[in-house]
Simulated assay, not measured.
Amino acid sequence: MMPLIPLTVTLVALGTAAPWALAKDEVSSDGVKVEEMSALRKLVPEEELEAAAAQQYLEMKNQAAQHRALAPADNPQLQRLNAIAKKLIPHAERWNPRARQWKWEVSLIGSKEINAFCMPGGKIAFFSGILNQLKLTDDEVAIVMGHEIAHALREHGRERVAKSGLASAGAKIAGIGLSALLGIDPNLAGAATGGVANLTMLKFSRDDETEADLVGLDIVARAGYDPRAGIALWRKMAMVQKNESLQWLSTHPAGKARIAEIQRHLPTVMPLYAKAKGVPQSSLPPYKSNVEGITPIHR
């Protein structure tokens, strides 16, 4: 099996948009409720955005493969990620019907970066640093993946493209304009980077981050993963941040307010989790993380 060799990359949780004008805002009587998506996103052709994202994702994978940093299909951690994605994806189309057409894909890149992202069209990537340094449980991996998928389903990146004035873009969407907007070096696949992917950060608004948290919790709970793991995840992030700067936190601000928002919505998503597990909510045990210092979460 090909070993994962760290690749010097700065790629940040793009969580970019999945384009679809008919994405749902209130999908059922249970689960979380969110505001309507911005009509501005309709100015950007979803097919062109997805095609550009697919191309850039392929270029990133090719570059990682050249540096022996792309995990092969038999890598246990990649298999783990695929298994979790397989459980989450069936619950995506309730938030965006176009998701059923996406060619979903999960990649694992060997890098110390604490990072993950989902691009338009369901292109997901995790960096080994987020798994290894945070010692993520399956529930916590699901929280990260659900959050990034939610950014795509709620078309946050598509809206950002529209607001940037690139809506007319045919060629721009497939070229440097979109690359820069999504934080991707247009020379990613070329020799100009010296074989090192140079990607910058895409920062969503506070409202986008909150929405991705909530929609992600809904998806995770329906898939049978414990939404309380979100609290443990952000507590882990805070613990690790004391020792180093985290790229993921630069685009996903943490803090007590974020944890409080998750806690506030647990009464909405915990019944979904209990239903997925096939047990009464009252019989659910506390969520226990795997790191000393994080107390069991009962709510």
Rank of each mutant, 00 (worst) to 15 (best):
T251G: 15
A167N: 10
M60L: 15
L136W: 06
G15A: 05
A212D: 02
A221C: 09
A232T: 00
T137S: 15
N132R: 11
G165Y: 12
L58R: 14
K288A: 07
E261V: 11
E48I: 11
E46D: 13
G122T: 09
I297K: 04
M1Q: 13
V9R: 06
S250P: 03
V141A: 06
M2N: 11
S107R: 09
M2Q: 13
R100P: 01
M237D: 01
N96A: 09
P280W: 09
G224K: 04
I176A: 13
V27C: 02
L166M: 12
G255F: 07
I143H: 06
I114N: 01
V291Y: 01
K86C: 00
H147S: 07
V106Q: 13
A180F: 10
E113H: 00
M2F: 06
T210W: 05
A21Y: 03
K61N: 12
R160G: 05
G177N: 12
G278S: 03
T137Y: 02
S282T: 11
W234L: 09
V106R: 06
L284Q: 10
P3T: 06
A169F: 13
E93T: 11
A171I: 15
E155F: 12
I294W: 08
V161Y: 04
V240D: 00
R299P: 01
A192Q: 13
S250K: 14
I184W: 10
Q101H: 12
Q66Y: 07
L136S: 03
G129H: 00
T193H: 02
L131V: 08
G183S: 03
A23K: 14
T200P: 00
N132T: 14
A142H: 07
L249E: 11
A39F: 12
G293C: 07
R41F: 10
N82G: 08
A257R: 08
A274S: 07
A276G: 07
L40Q: 12
I231N: 00
T16L: 15
L182D: 05
F126K: 04
G146Q: 03
R235W: 01
E36G: 08
L266S: 05
A171F: 15
D226H: 07
W102S: 06
V161E: 03
G278L: 04
K103C: 01
A191D: 11
